[in-house]
């Protein structure tokens, strides 16, 4: 069956199309490629979570010595972006290889929703609060840090759940 490019098509058709592209088929039929992409994805996650957690701990008053949050955040923003870039490069490739299954998996949609919220939050409110000079008052900083940790952990948990809750 030939599936045409998904211009104006339904979401289900788009996901079907993704899996049947040359890219999707190639990755799907190579355990080595899938494993490699998953490893790259996990290393990106490690970088991202490590850097974000360090900044959020600083916001919570558990940072490194007396170093201001803004300095830690500035010093780590490059690695946060690198981690995010690695994940955003590898994630869609994994998705292409199992798009039809992802489409039917609630955890996938939960992850995408949390990811969108986490990214939006990170580059707006979180960014403003971490770089604020003088620092935001404690309560604000704490709420923002807690939300950030909750959102990114949510993304990570939902990601793992995609693999665990296999849909036939």
């Amino acid at each position: 069956m030939m599936i045409h490019a998904p211009l104006f098509a339904s979401l289900a058709t788009t996901f079907q199309w993704m899996q049947h592209t040359y890219l999707g088929e190639t990755i799907r039929h190579s355990a080595t490629l899938i494993a490699t992409l998953e490893i790259v994805h996990l290393i990106g996650l490690a970088l991202l979570l490590g850097a974000i957690l360090m900044v959020d701990l600083s916001l919570l008053g558990l940072g490194i010595g007396a170093y201001p949050v803004s300095r830690i955040a500035q010093d780590l923003s490059g690695w946060t972006l690198a981690g995010l870039a690695i994940m955003l490069a590898s994630g869609p490739l994994i998705l292409f290889s199992e798009a039809e299954r992802c489409y039917k998996t609630p955890a996938f949609w939960i992850k995408m929703t949390l990811l969108a919220v986490a990214i939006a939050f990170h580059f707006t409110i979180h960014r403003r609060v971490t770089l604020a000079e003088p620092p935001e008052p404690r309560p604000t900083a704490r709420i923002v840090a807690s939300l950030s940790v909750a959102l990114w952990f949510g993304v990570a948990f939902a990601g793992k759940a995609i693999a665990i809750f296999q849909v036939p």
């Binding site: 290393i43 490690a46 970088l47 979570l49 490590g50």
Partner: peptide
């Protein structure tokens, strides 16, 4: 991922 991220 967390331990490796922190050590990294």
């Amino acid at each position: 991922v967390l331990v490796a991220g922190a050590i990294m």
